[in-house]
Every structure is written in C-alpha cells, then in structure tokens.
C-alpha cells in the first residue's frame, strides 16, 4: 500500500510527536523513578511502535474484515498491556532495572557485527568473516594468535566447502571481487 506525500508528512509529524511525548515521559521517569527507566522505555517504545503502525494502517482499504482489522487489534492490545506495565512502574509496583553490565563491550560487539554486515557487501563474505572472527576473539581478550587465525581460516574454509560449494548458497563475493574478477 503506497502512502502519498501528505499522508507521509502527517505520519512523520505524528511519529515525531509520539517520540517527543515518550522522551518527556522518560525524562520524568528518570527524575522520579531512575531505577526503572529501562523498564519504562521498553513498553513505551512498543506503544510508540504500535501507534505508528496503527496510523499507517489507516491507509489500508477499509473493508468489512479487511486488512486493517487484525493489525489494529494487535496494536490496540499492545497499547493496553504496555499501558498497564507503565502504570505499575509509576505506582512503584514493578521490579527495578537489572544492574548494568559491561555495556561498552556490548556496544563494541554490536558495532563489529554491523561493520561485518556492511563489509560483506563490499569485500565479500569470506574475507569479512575471517576478519570479523579474528577481531572479535581479540576484542574479547583471547590472545592465542595461532588459535585465533586458524579458527577464522577454518570457518571460512568450512563455509566455502559446505555452504558455497555443496549447498550452492550464493554467499556475497563483494563489490570489489565482482568489479575486478567477474
């Protein structure tokens, strides 16, 4: 279902409004219930997500038992139950957030995973997998270099033989390879 420009603009404004409301509520929670901020953000974000989809679904054909019915039903129920969870937070009846662990390391791992994902398209699956595995093991403070690079190479060989050669899965070879060698 295509959305026209004015509908798109309205949707963008509506989404912005929802995000501002969520941000303001998060600011209030951070001030008054700091130990429950994470627990608040999950249902609040789900409400925003559901309301945006709810708004988008208004562009679907409005038929009896049409494509609009079920998404709006699920969306409404999410808003209701998330609202209930938020209420328990406001009334201090919810559990406090779990202790924060090594988020810096987690951010590095997610970042590496994203770099790996984008690199696959450019330098190809095999080289990017080799580099990703080696780098991640090193980042996770494993220091036996022989093991690091032999496992990385072993995985590349395994995926080449099993997935690429035997199962004919067209793993990305990368823009560089395709430009110069194909």
């Amino acid at each position: 279902m295509e959305i026209n420009i004015s509908e798109g603009l309205n949707l963008a404004l509506f989404s912005l409004l929802l995000i501002i409301i969520e941000g303001s509520a998060a600011w209030w929670i951070a001030k008054n219930r700091r130990d429950m901020l994470g627990s608040f953000l999950v249902p609040a974000t789900l409400i925003v997500f559901s309301l945006i989809l709810w708004a988008v679904s208004r562009s679907f054909p409005d038929e009896d038992i049409g494509p609009i019915v079920i998404p709006q039903l699920w969306g409404t129920l999410i808003v209701v139950f998330c609202g209930y969870v938020i209420l328990t937070i406001v009334r201090r009846k919810a559990d406090v957030d779990p202790k924060t662990g090594n988020l810096k390391m987690l951010a590095v791992v997610v970042f590496l995973l994203l770099v790996y994902f984008f690199a696959m398209d450019i330098i190809g699956y095999f080289l990017s997998s080799f580099l990703f595995l080696g780098t991640l093991m090193y980042v996770l403070t494993y220091r036996n270099h022989k093991v690091i690079w032999s496992i990385s190479a072993g995985w590349v060989l395994f995926s080449y033989l099993i997935f690429f050669k035997m199962l004919y899965i067209a793993l990305p070879l990368g823009v560089i390879y395709e430009t110069f060698f194909e």
Binding site: L46, V56, P71, W74, G75, I78, C82
Partner: peptide, 30 residues
C-alpha cells in the same frame, strides 16, 4: 502481562507483508 506483550509483538510483526487475503501490502514502506 509481559508474556502477552511479547506474543502480541510477534503477532503484530507477522502482519508485516502482503495481506494473505486481500493482497494489500502492509507496513512494507516500499
């Protein structure tokens, strides 16, 4: 309540794509 939210999230995610009955595309954003 949290289990219900989780299942509803899964159900809502499943509505993304071509509607199985009318063929209308839903939440595909092109």
């Amino acid at each position: 309540a949290k289990a219900l939210i989780a299942i509803l999230f899964g159900l809502l995610i499943k509505t993304i794509g071509i509607d199985p009955i009318s063929g209308v595309s839903r939440f595909t954003f092109g």
